[in-house]
Structures are given as structure tokens and as C-alpha cells.
Write a protein that binds this DNA or RNA. Structure first.
Lengths: 352, 352
DNA sequence: TCCACTTAAGCAACGCTGTTGCCAAAGTGC
DNA sequence: GCACTTTGGCAACAGCGTTGCTTAAGTGGA
């Protein structure tokens, strides 16, 4: 909790590297970095010199002069390091390799059955990750693994995944780390997706990633940081009561959003499902004062405009101005999983 | 955003001072401070020497020896500084003076009518604060002012307070600061109360303060920090939809928690009101993975056990283990308001 | 073409941070 | 009484960002 001088140094270095990252291909000059960080230009020069010496940054041309020496443009070097992201879903495994900028370099997919138990499934994960790393791309930071909740991201252990009791308590993170010889970070699928979305250069400060697939969940990003909660339980949108004394749910409650929404989907009433989802989204927007809602998950992606329009309609009807968007696509969770290991490089989510 | 050496110094000093504060009367030794902060004992010695020189800390006895030189106990000096907290409610004004530890030193109360307009009401606030400070207690850090929402805590300006349109946009913070010659911080009543509760030494990391008075709102504390949102809108619990297509609400929605809950109160059905409130609280606990629910507000305090038991029952029925408590009492908001100016001294809520 | 001017960025000296190594102070217990 | 343990201050130190100055590299008017 206390900060000493080396900690200060690495904090500022991470801050500068993050600005280089978000500047992307465009790059950014030393003086802009100084303005954005509040540090003096001289300090930025020192920090960027170290980053260049480590191969993390490079000079890339000049800006137009404004009457004096033109600013030198600096850029991050994405190939300086790589990370693996794994999305372990109930029936499918997606593993991908990204560079330091989060761009997908390679991808592998195969069907799996979570019900087959931890041993065989982790065998499959190990195989796919080894295959990705067979052609060694350079320094690999680690592996991010995203699974359906509930789980404990600090211990790296799944909880009672609905329908897959044998996973509960299995030391997934440590076992995979031992097999691969790489650091592994475990998190909930929705949290991983939200993290990946949160670190896009254009991301708003606070938003919710609402995922409608085999279940209904959300990843919450508040003030730039994902909210996990002490028990990795945050984002349990599916079991919000939106119908007092409504139909019972397996969770013990009644009128849960997930039950109502998925029932509408099952009936084929997608606009009604979108309206129910919109009510849940509106509750989020109002309770947390967030800037944006991003929809994702298989059910949404099967009829994106129906859901986007439906949710948008509910928010507009309540006078809420938060825009509604769609999350990138099929691999949002796996890409976010890679960010679980990339993020610390940029000083994000220090405490996992 | 960047951190330089003086910033590091003040950060560590605030950190140490906060540990002294939470240690309270008991005090804490230099070595414990070193363990808790991660700093070396020598660094802690230097920092505490400065704090003692500034009069913020003092030595207070010794611990029992464990085989060597006994540890010297350090304590914060609460009388080193004071702060004013003002709770401006729809019909009542509470102003109090606290010391650096947040203990109430003096209190004044009078009826007001928010509808009388900003001018006369701010006159009354000015009078009461001046009266509190008539017998000057020492260094006064500033004034925290808590009002019903909506408002903009960054600009220090109320929004459209329901039923009191003339307050909208009035520069309350700046005007009061000019009148009193002291820094003023404005925040929503529920946020102030939550802040005060969050800074108690025994507070859990994440909790919700649920306030049921003339309206229904919540103050959310996540990971030790109050959540306000960019528009100070976070905590709008009252307009969470918990009854799809339920009775209409003035907000444009249907089945809002506030409408249902207050209707039950109006019918005299307090257990039913508690059950509805409990449903809202359960939604909070699940969505945000919080550790505790604290109930407050006039309606709750009029029948505390009914509401506490009712909410507790709903949570227990859903298998949620978060304990339900009652917020201290009538002046929770005013005491929290004082913390709006005290908190920065301890490195809390840097960004207001 | 020249030259004054502006802006960018590195070099060197500096102040200040927390750290390290050492030692005095103040207890315990054989 | 003495060996031992633990606390906490003193002094020297490495390393951070800052300050003052210099050099590099442009623009634009005479």
C-alpha cells in the first residue's frame, strides 16, 4: 500500500506505456505525454528512453513543425511481448495469441464438454496453448483463462458452475500454470470481455457489458476498472428480481431477469426478450450512472439489431441517454482473457 | 496522473495518518505501521516524525515488551483540525462540527423549507455554520454540504430537486464558499452518509447504505471508495424496476422500487414494505457482490427492527450471507458530510 | 540568403524520497 | 550482572523527478 521510489518509477513507466498504447498507430510525442501525465518533459524523456532501451517503444517520424523543432512521434512496439487468451465455454474452447497491443495473432478453436471434468478439459487447453506457442513469437507474458462463473479469481478456482459440480474447487489456475510453465490468471467470462472492452482506446469510463448466451450476466466497468467484488460475484445480472413474486428460478428467487428473458427467447418472442433485457440494462444505467451499454453473447449476436433496438427503446423511454452498442463479436471473451495478463503491464487492475 | 516525489511523500504521509486514525484510542506502533504500509521502519520513523512536528500525531505510552525494547505507541491528535458537516434536508437543517477523528463536537438544528429558495436557505446555513465556528476550535478544514439529489458534485450545483425547481443550477457550493471563506464540498445526502460509514474503522470494503425517507436511495461503497458516477447519479435505487409493467412512476418508468415500497408504507404494511426493500437490497448484493447492507432514513428508523428483520429475511431466503445492519442514527448524513472535507486528509476520494 | 525567433529534447547539477548499515536505548531472562 | 532481543534514530546512499542551461531543428521576415 505504501509507495517507495522504485514503485513510483514503475508506476510512471506503466502510465507512459499505456498512453503509447492508446495512441496506437498514430503515436504520441514526448510533450503530449508530459501534458497528459503531469510530469515534466524531461522526466518523460528519461522514461521513454528507458522504454526504448527495453524495446517497448520506438521513435516513428515527426509531426509537422509549429514554428520550431518538430515533435518526435513515439510508438509502442506491439511485438515486444505476447499473451495468450483462452475462453473455456460450456461446449467450446477458444485459444488465441495476441501481441502487446491486444491484436490477435493466431487463433485455435475446438469443441469441448465441460462436463467431461477438469482433467480432460485442461488437457485440451494445454494442447491448444502449446500449439499456439509452437512457433515461438517472442516473450510470452502469460495466459488468461475465462470461464463461466461463479468462481474465485483471487484463488484461481471455479465455484459451483451450474451443471458441472466436479469443477468446484479444482485448482484450475495453479494446475494450468504448472503444466504450461507460464503465469495463469483466471476470471469470469463476462469480466474478461468487459476488461477487453474497457481497455480499448475509445472506451467510456463506465459501462456494462451485458451478455446473453446460455445464461445472462454482465461485466461492470466503473471508472475504467472492472468491478469484480470480493467473491468475484459482481455482475450477477441474471438473478436480479424484476418481477416481484414472478416465476420461480433455480436460484431460489422469483422473477429473475434471466428466467424471464430466456423464456421469451424460447418462445421466439425476441422483441419481448429485448424489452426485458432493456429493463435490466436500464436498472444498471440508473443504479451505477454508467455511460454506455454493450450487448454481446450468442443470443444477442443471432439477432443483433432486434436486441440493440429493443434495449435502446427501453432506455429512451425512460429518458436515459446512455448509448447502446454491440460488443465486437464471437471472440470478445477470449480477447478479453488475453488482457488479463496484458493489463498489468499498463498499470491496470493492479489487484487481482 | 503521473506521480512525482512530493506526491509520493504526501501519499505515504496520508496513508500513515489514516492508519493512525483507524487505530483510534488504541494507537499503533511504528513497526506495525511499517508492516501495514510495506514501507521500511526507518521510512515510517521519518514520516511519523513529520506528523508529530505538524501536531497531527503524538506518542502515547508503550506496548508490553516481547523480549526487547517495547514498542512506542503513536496516536493521531483529533484536535489538530476540525470540519463542518451540513445536512440540508427538505424540511430540516442540521449543522455540526467534528474533530479530525470525525467525532461530533457541536451540533445545531433548525427547521427550513427548501421550497423557500436558495437565497433564504443559504442564509440559514451561513448563520448556523457561523454560530458553530463562533467559538473558534482551531484549524477548520472546510464545510461538507449534503443535499437530496440529483446534483453535480463536481460542479457543486444541484440539479432538478424534485419539487424544488428553483434550486436547479444554482451555484450552491461556490456561493457558500464565498460567504464563509472556507472550502465547500457538495454531495448527495446518501453519498455523504455512505462516505461517513465507509470511513469507520470497522467498515467492510463494499457495502450499500439504503436510505428510506421521503424518497428511496442508496449510497454505494465499492472497495472502500464511494461510487458516484460521472453525473453523481449512482445509487438511484428508488427507480429500479422490480415489477415489470407495474404501477407507473413519476420518473416515466413502471414498477419502480420507490413507488411500491412507499405505497406499502402509506398503507401501513411495514413488513410488506420491508420485503420489497429487501428485494431491492438483494438485487444490490447480487449485482455488486457487496459485504453488507446498512439501512437508514426516517421511515426505517421509525420501525428499525421491522425493516432489518424483513430485509434480512429476503436475503436469507435467497441464500445471501451479507449481514444487514442499521446506520447509526439521525445525524448519519450530517456526520458523513463532515467527512467530505476530512477524507482528503487521509488520502481518500482524491478525485471529487 | 541570412538571421532572429520558436519549439523540442538532452545534459548536468540538485533536492528530496525511501533504503541500508550501524549503533544507542530499553527491555527480558538465565 | 550479563547475554540477548527488539526498537528506533543517525548518517551515508542510490535513484526518482525537477531545474537551469545548451544543442538541435524547424519557421518566417528582411
Amino acid at each position: 500500500m505504501g509507495v517507495n521510489v522504485p514503485a513510483l518509477r514503475s508506476h510512471n513507466a506503466a502510465l507512459v506505456l499505456d498512453l503509447l498504447r492508446t495512441a496506437g498507430e498514430t503515436g504520441i510525442s514526448r510533450l503530449e505525454l508530459a501534458e497528459r501525465t503531469g510530469l515534466t518533459p524531461q522526466a518523460v524523456s528519461k522514461i521513454t528512453a528507458r522504454l526504448r532501451a527495453e524495446g517497448l517503444a520506438t521513435e516513428a517520424g515527426h509531426r509537422a513543425s509549429t514554428g520550431g523543432k518538430p515533435r518526435t512521434v513515439l510508438r509502442m512496439v506491439p511485438s515486444a511481448a505476447y499473451a495468450v487468451g483462452v475462453h473455456l465455454d460450456r461446449d467450446e474452447l477458444t485459444a488465441l495469441l495476441t501481441d502487446l497491443a491486444g491484436a490477435v495473432v493466431a487463433l485455435r478453436r475446438r469443441p469441448v464438454d465441460l462436463g467431461a471434468g477438469a482433467g480432460p478439459v485442461l488437457d485440451a487447453v494445454t494442447e491448444e496453448v502449446r500449439a499456439l506457442l509452437a512457433d515461438p513469437p517472442g516473450s510470452v507474458l502469460g495466459v488468461g483463462l475465462a470461464m463461466p462463473g461463479p468462481l474465485d479469481h483471487r484463488a484461481g478456482v471455479p465455484g459451483r458452475v451450474t451443471g458441472f459440480p466436479e469443477w468446484a474447487g479444482h485448482p484450475v489456475r495453479d494446475e494450468l500454470a504448472a503444466r504450461l510453465g507460464l503465469p495463469v490468471v483466471l476470471d469470469k467470462d463476462t469480466n474478461a470481455a468487459a476488461l477487453g472492452l474497457a481497455l480499448r482506446p475509445t472506451a467510456p469510463g463506465s459501462f456494462a457489458y451485458v451478455h446473453l448466451g446460455t445464461g445472462l450476466g454482465a461485466g461492470l466497468v466503473l471508472g475504467g476498472a472492472p468491478l469484480r467484488g470480493d467473491r468475484t460475484g459482481a455482475g450477477e445480472l441474471g438473478h436480479q428480481t424484476v418481477q416481484l413474486d414472478g416465476p420461480p428460478c433455480g436460484c431460489g428467487g422469483r422473477g429473475c431477469l434471466e428466467v424471464l428473458c430466456l423464456a421469451a427467447v424460447a418462445r421466439g418472442e425476441l422483441p419481448e426478450a429485448a424489452r426485458i433485457l432493456g429493463t435490466g440494462a436500464a436498472n444498471l444505467v440508473r443504479l451505477l450512472d454508467i455511460d454506455q451499454v454493450l450487448l454481446g453473447g450468442r443470443v444477442v449476436l443471432a439477432a443483433p439489431s432486434v436486441f440493440a433496438e429493443g434495449v435502446r427503446g427501453v432506455l429512451a423511454g425512460l429518458g436515459l441517454s446512455a448509448p447502446v452498442g454491440l460488443a465486437t463479436g464471437r471472440d470478445a471473451v477470449a480477447e478479453g482473457a488475453a488482457w488479463l495478463t496484458l493489463a498489468p503491464v499498463f498499470g491496470k487492475q493492479a489487484e487481482l
